[in-house]
């Protein structure tokens, strides 16, 4: 047995973004607690949860930030994108408007995270097939055009929830393995070795020591 067989060796920071009411908080809750919250209040702020997962045989601690989806908080929630290794971009398959807004969310995600941040598109509320307003195919196409991972999931039944987080983690892990993700970069969103989760100031994210990142 190795010295620390149960411990995690990586921390990945995730953010969950998307319009209000698409089920971001429910996805997080389902992922961390395996429960569905039927009447989840709007998130007015940023919450976070953690869970340790096994990714390709490695224990990885996911530190997930769930942001407020309401438009009026948009400017503030932008502060939280920085340093995310993964972004879950969520829409509601029963509300087309939430799908239509994806491009603006995607713009934010691309502008405010680093180029290696793995973005996964999630069509939530897949359990409400009867009320479907966005087809799987068109969303799949959107994801492909933009180089996103894609899954339809349900925070209610739990379907694909685990997978969504895992798929992103696998991709991140793969990026680490093939060297395209530089762990030393301050904004990689990945920490090697366990360390204290940093709630930190929004603005005091560690500055890259060397090259100024102008992304």
């Amino acid at each position: 047995m190795t010295a620390a067989p149960y411990n995690y060796s990586y921390i990945f920071k995730y953010i969950i973004i998307g319009d209000m009411g698409v089920g971001k908080s429910c996805l997080l809750h389902q992922f961390t607690e395996k429960k569905f919250m039927a009447d989840c209040p709007h998130t007015i702020g940023v919450e976070f949860g953690t869970r340790i997962m096994e990714v390709n045989g490695q224990k990885v601690k996911l530190q997930i930030w769930d942001t407020a989806g309401q438009e009026r908080f948009r400017a503030v929630t932008r502060s939280y994108y920085r340093g995310a290794a993964g972004a879950l971009m969520v829409y509601d398959i029963t509300r087309r408007s939430t799908y239509n807004h994806l491009s603006s969310w995607l713009t934010d995600a691309r502008n405010l995270t680093n180029p290696n941040t793995v973005i996964i598109l999630i069509g939530n509320k897949a359990d409400l097939e009867a009320q479907r307003d966005v087809t799987y195919e068109e969303a799949k196409q959107f994801a492909e055009e933009n180089g996103l991972l894609f899954l339809e999931a349900s925070a209610k039944t739990g379907e694909n929830v685990e997978e969504a987080f895992l798929e992103a983690a696998k991709r991140i892990y793969q990026n680490i393995q093939d060297g395209s993700l530089d762990l030393n970069a301050a904004e990689s969103g990945v920490q090697h070795k366990p360390s204290v989760p940093q709630g930190g100031r929004l603005s005091s994210d560690t500055q890259p020591a060397k090259e100024g990142c102008s992304c």
């Binding site: 007015i44 702020g45 009026r72 908080f73 503030v76 989760p197 940093q198 709630g199």
Partner: peptide, 16 residues
């Protein structure tokens, strides 16, 4: 304005 009330090692709350 929107104020961000931060809890050390915890959630953030927005105040409108």
């Amino acid at each position: 304005d929107i104020l961000v009330l931060h809890l050390e090692r915890g959630k953030d709350y927005f105040l409108s």
